[in-house]
């Protein structure tokens, strides 16, 4: 790759380096709380020390790369679809955590994702998602007797 003199410092690259450093710190801090129990065991601390040390070195390596501007170019980013998909996942998680059952959550996730990919038919997609969820529910719960997180809808079956 030809190096161009106008390369700017890559801020995102520096943030990555910083995150790695923070991770290294967390691993180290967590390691200090461990004890060596068996007199013959190398102990649970050795691996965290290696990982923490490696991450620190890699943070430096990434920082150098960022300062030199060697990170690859990136396209502009459209945040809206990402928020839609993550929102769909968050709804599913919340519904399962608070006993709303997975069916509504799955239908929501399906509709949200397909909206994120440019479809404009939320209700139709919601219904499609719900049909898939019912199908999966019947397959798992009835055929394999697995218990899936149930809410009001699931209890109808």
């Amino acid at each position: 790759m030809a190096s161009s003199p106008q390369r700017r410092i890559d801020v995102a690259g520096l943030v990555i380096a910083l995150i790695l450093l923070v991770l290294a710190g967390i691993v180290w801090w967590d390691m200090t709380k461990l004890q060596i129990l068996s007199p013959y065991d190398l102990g649970p601390k050795v691996m965290p020390v290696i990982v923490s040390g490696g991450l620190t070195l890699l943070a430096i390596g990434n920082a150098i790369g960022a300062l030199r501007g060697t990170l690859p170019d990136r396209d502009s980013l459209d945040w809206k679809p990402i928020i839609l998909i993550l929102g769909g996942l968050a709804c599913l998680i919340a519904l399962i955590a608070f006993g709303g059952g997975f069916m509504i959550g799955t239908a929501l996730l399906f509709a949200a994702t397909s909206t994120a990919f440019g479809r404009r038919a939320f209700v139709t997609d919601f219904i499609i998602g719900a049909v898939i969820a019912v199908f999966i529910y019947l397959l798992f719960a009835k055929l394999l007797t697995l218990s899936l997180p149930a809410g009001p809808l699931e209890n109808l079956f």
Binding site: G88, L109, T113, S114, T115, I132
Partner: peptide
């Protein structure tokens, strides 16, 4: 849209 929704 459906493919990725289905994948998720």
């Amino acid at each position: 849209p459906w493919l990725y929704a289905g994948i998720l």
